[in-house]
Simulated assay, not measured.
Amino acid sequence: MRRFAPALALSALALPAPALADLPAPVRAMIDAAIETGDEDTVRTVIDLARTTNPGEAAEIDAILAAYETDLAAAAEAEAAAEQERIRTAGLFDNWSGKGELGAFRSTGNASNTGITAGLSLVREGIDWRHKLSGRADYQETEGVVTREQFLAAYEPNWKITDGLYAYGLAQYERDRFQGFSARYSVSGGLGYDVLTGEEMTLSVKAGPAWRRTEFVGGGSRSDLAGLAALDFDWQLLDTVTFTQDASAFVQSGSSTFISDSGLVAKVAGDFSLRLSYTVEHDTDPPAGAVNTDTLSRVTIIYDF
């Protein structure tokens, strides 16, 4: 159901209506009242009824509809132009949306324990650019000894080439001492495409060359050229339940990294949701003393803003 500003309704009421003398006054009053509501569905329903009950004045009724549709298109165009201008003139801290997460995790692999997890993701949509910021931390301490410490921070700008095609850049930092590295830096750039953009299902894929530098806990470091491929899939199963699947692969001559994150998000109340997720991270050639595969089960509360 589409609604428009009162200005549109008033404008439509003031439109010149040539050759409407034969249209009964009550019928014209009914059409005018429908236009005044600003509800397009109501207007079209009333006009259809007026045409059915007054077949002799069909041409005059069609003239009213044509004038209404012209005004409708002009209002939509003006609204779109105003929205674009608002985005173009927005300040640095405007037009951001995002979500925060807080909850608990259970891990297996290099460390088997339970701890707390927190995450934050932000998106800023512009005319030609989209900016993404994300961060996550998993931490657990037992009797004063840290048994889980994993941090990730990433920044990804997108430049929109067409409606679906975009160029991306990525800068990412990771820290996971239990996987054997005190820091891992990743930089990538390439192309992405929004394959699905429906209300119930979205799918975005991207790929490009990458460079990674790993600083090991035991000392020393390594730099490698790599290739990055990733996907982001969301499927709204029910009005309040969404399935999410994120996957990425850094493929290189050294230790390649494959990550899969599957989740179910259920709306709880207002802007709050509950998320259950399962993450698998596999390194083909981890540092000495570390195992290849880590898994992480998370239960988090999400706040959308």
Rank of each mutant, 00 (worst) to 15 (best):
F4S: 10
A5Q: 14
A5H: 15
A14M: 03
P18M: 02
P26Q: 00
P26Y: 01
A33L: 03
E36P: 02
D39S: 06
D41K: 14
V46W: 10
I47T: 12
I47V: 13
I47R: 12
D48N: 13
L49E: 15
N54Y: 07
G56C: 13
A58F: 11
A59L: 10
A59G: 12
E60V: 13
A63M: 07
I64C: 05
E69Y: 09
A73K: 12
A73V: 08
E77A: 15
E79A: 15
A81F: 05
A82W: 11
E83P: 11
T108Q: 14
G115P: 05
A118H: 14
E125K: 14
D128E: 11
R130I: 06
G135K: 01
E141Q: 12
I161Y: 05
I161T: 08
A171L: 11
A171Y: 08
G189L: 08
A210R: 04
R213V: 07
R213I: 06
G218D: 00
G220V: 01
R222E: 11
S223F: 00
G227W: 10
F233N: 09
Q236W: 00
L237T: 10
D239V: 10
V241L: 13
T242I: 11
F250D: 00
F250V: 02
Q252F: 00
Q252I: 00
Q252E: 02
S260G: 11
D261Q: 04
V265Q: 14
A269C: 08
P287N: 01
P287K: 01
N292D: 08
L296N: 14
R298A: 03
